[in-house]
């Protein structure tokens, strides 16, 4: 079967999944969350004011039409306007996505490269002092709160040593680079612990497989065995773990963004939650659901490329 036919078919499966996801989001926001007019108008609003606002927000329409609006927004990415800033949400998201991505993409790519190569190295020296020391460092890095890294980094590296910008952002192309250096470094330190530990487990699972013994009995050197035989087998769990992180990169890094004053999507979401700006929160929820579904399709397609045992059907 042609791979494109497979991709097309997987994309068709996305439609019912998306309808279901929209239904869940709709129930959460319109039923569970209750009437937003109380939140918007405060305690002393009259019944007339509330009815007017409901009409203005379209909340007096039959629920089915409101659901259809939500589904439509998932396909058109037109999420209406924010309740608090009255801005178009699509514009807000597209403006916030870039600063987020300038931080998350370098962080994600560098962390993945570092931790996969380090895990191969650790698998090569498995059981040695180096191996145990790396696990110790990983657990140590994971045990410290992310706030500690941010505050220490800002004080020591940015303020005391003056190596980086303390906070701020510039949306022009090369100008933002100095502002994201320290945030990216902190991102790497935060994620290398769990990543390296996970990849190490995968590599060690593979290193003790029978096919590795066969490869040795053929006379292959340890390097070829690791980089060719082990790595290709390990790609399957690595792809699952790595690709599914990508949709979350769009959502940005909440804490790092707010501490470093980066106007990314993390900050937008946080503000929306604080001001009960339902359309924005709902837009972010729909957006992440769509991204998650699309990247799981990509994961499935990548499997068929890496693992010959996965057949297209």
């Amino acid at each position: 079967m042609n791979i494109w036919v497979y991709v097309l078919r997987r994309l068709l499966y996305v439609i019912p999944i998306l309808l279901g996801v929209c239904l869940i989001i709709f129930v959460l926001f319109n039923v569970v969350a209750g009437d937003p007019t109380h939140l918007l108008l405060g305690k002393h609003a009259t019944a007339k004011q509330m009815a007017e606002l409901r009409h203005e927000l379209g909340l007096d329409r039959p629920w089915f039409f409101q659901y259809l609006d939500l589904v439509k927004s998932a396909f058109t990415f037109d999420f209406g306007r924010s309740w608090s800033t009255k801005q178009s949400i699509t514009t807000m998201i597209s403006e916030g996505a870039l600063p987020s991505l300038t931080l998350t993409i370098p962080g994600f790519v560098l962390t993945t490269i570092f931790s996969v190569s380090l895990s191969l190295l650790v698998a090569f020296y498995r059981g040695s002092f180096f191996d145990r020391f790396s696990v110790f460092i990983c657990v140590g890095l994971m045990s410290i709160s992310s706030l500690a890294y941010i505050l220490f980094g800002q004080w020591f590296f940015a303020y005391y040593l003056g190596w980086f910008e303390i906070s701020g952002y510039d949306s022009e192309f090369p100008n933002w680079i100095p502002y994201v250096q320290l945030p990216v470094l902190i991102w790497i330190i935060l994620s290398i612990g769990p990543d390296l530990r996970f990849f190490r487990t995968i590599m060690l699972d593979e290193v003790y497989q029978d096919y590795v013994r066969t490869a040795r009995s053929k006379g292959l050197g340890e390097k070829v065995i690791l980089f060719k035989h082990v790595l290709k087998n390990a790609m399957i769990p690595i792809i699952t773990y790595v690709v599914i992180q990508i949709p979350f990169l769009i959502l940005g890094a909440l804490l790092i963004e707010s501490f470093f004053g980066i106007p990314g999507l993390g900050g937008i979401t946080l503000n929306a939650i604080n001001s009960s700006d339902f359309p924005v929160i709902r837009a972010m929820t729909v957006l992440s659901a769509v991204a998650y579904i699309i990247f799981s399709v990509i994961t499935d397609v990548l499997y068929t490329i890496v693992d010959p045992r996965v057949r297209l059907k």
């Binding site: 029978d210 096919y211 066969t214 490869a215 035989h229 290709k232 087998n233 890496v306 693992d307 010959p308």
Partner: peptide, 12 residues
């Protein structure tokens, strides 16, 4: 080896 099912590398 004893284990023909696992002694070959599955991805080559």
């Amino acid at each position: 080896f004893q284990e023909p099912m696992t002694s070959l590398n599955p991805v080559f």
